[in-house]
Amino acid sequence: MAAVAHSPSAARDASHRRDEMIAFAIMAILLAIAPLFAYPVFLMQAICFALYACAFNLLLGYVGLLSFGHAMFMGSASYFSAHIAKVWGWPPELAIIAATLGAAAIGVVTGALSIRRQGIYFAMVTLALSQMIYFFCLQAPFTHGEDGIQGVPQGRMFGLFDLSHQMTLYFVVLGIFLLAFLFIHRIINSPFGDVLKAIRENEPRAISLGYKADQYKLAAFVLSAALAGLAGATKALVSQNASLTDVHWSMSGEAVLMVLVGGLGTIFGPVVGAFVIIAMQNYLASYGQLVTIMQGLIFVVCVLVFRRGIVGEIAHRFNKSL
C-alpha cells in the first residue's frame, strides 16, 4: 500500500541506517525511563500492543497483505500461555515460547489457506478464519468460555527474575519487545525482506524473476503470526488472564487502526500508534461506547486525510525513512 522509496545509493542507505539506530536508541531510553512518569501496568499493556501492531505491520506494510484476523494469533497465544503457566505449571519463559510456537502453527494453517486469495478477499478470508477460532475458543473447555483463564501465575523467568515484582516484570516485557523489534527490523532489511517488498510492489514481476511468491508470503505470514502470538503470550502474563476479548474481531481491527495511525510501512509507526490508541482507550474507558465511536472517527479521518500516519508524516517532512 504505502510505497517507501528505497534509494539505491549506499551512502543514503548508511544514513538511513544511522537515523534508525538513533531513533531506536531514543525509543529504548524513553521506554526505560517511562515507569517514572506513567503507570507501569498501562505501559506494559501498551508495549504488548506495540509488538502486536509491529507484527501486523510486517505483513501489511512490507508484503501488502491486509489481514483482518490477527486477533486469532494474539488471542490464542494468550490462552496457550495462560493455560500452560497455570494448569501445566511451566515457567514463564517456556510458556511464552510454547504459546508463540502455537500461534505460529495456527499461522501455518490459516496462512496456507488465506494466501490463496489476494487483496480484499485475503482480508475477508482472514477475518472469517479468525471468527472460526473465536467460536472455537468460546466452546472449548480449556478456555472457560466467558470467564476466561484468570489468576495466571507469573512465576520466575529463567528461575531468576521474580515476575510478580512489577518493575522486574516491566523490564522483562521491555526486553522481549526490544528484541522482537530488532528481529523485525532485521527481517525487513534482509534479502528476504527485499523480496517481500518486491512482491508488494509487483507480484507478477517477482514471480517472473523466479521467486516463489507464495512461499515468501506464507513465511512472512507465519513470522507475523508468531510475533503477534509472542505479544499475546506476554500480555497474558502481564494481565494474568486470557479472555475472549483478545480473540474477538475488534482486536484485529485495533491492529489495523494502530498501524494506520502510526504510519503504514514505517518501522516505528506501529509503536507510536499503539501508544496513542491505548492511551485514548484508557482515557475514554469510563465513557463506554465512546471509544468505539472515536476509533471509527480516527479510521475515517486517517483514510481520508492522514494516510501517512504520525511517523510517516514526520519521516516525509524530514525526508527520512523511519
Binding site: 500500500m1 482480508a123 489495523v256 494506520l260 465511536i293 479510521f299 475515517v300
Partner: peptide, 23 residues
Amino acid sequence: LDHLYGLLLTFGVALIVQGVFQY
C-alpha cells in the same frame, strides 16, 4: 487509491454507526 483504503474507511463507518447505536 488502493482498494484496501475503501475497506478501511467503511470499517470506520461501521464502528461509528454501531458505536452510536450502542451508546
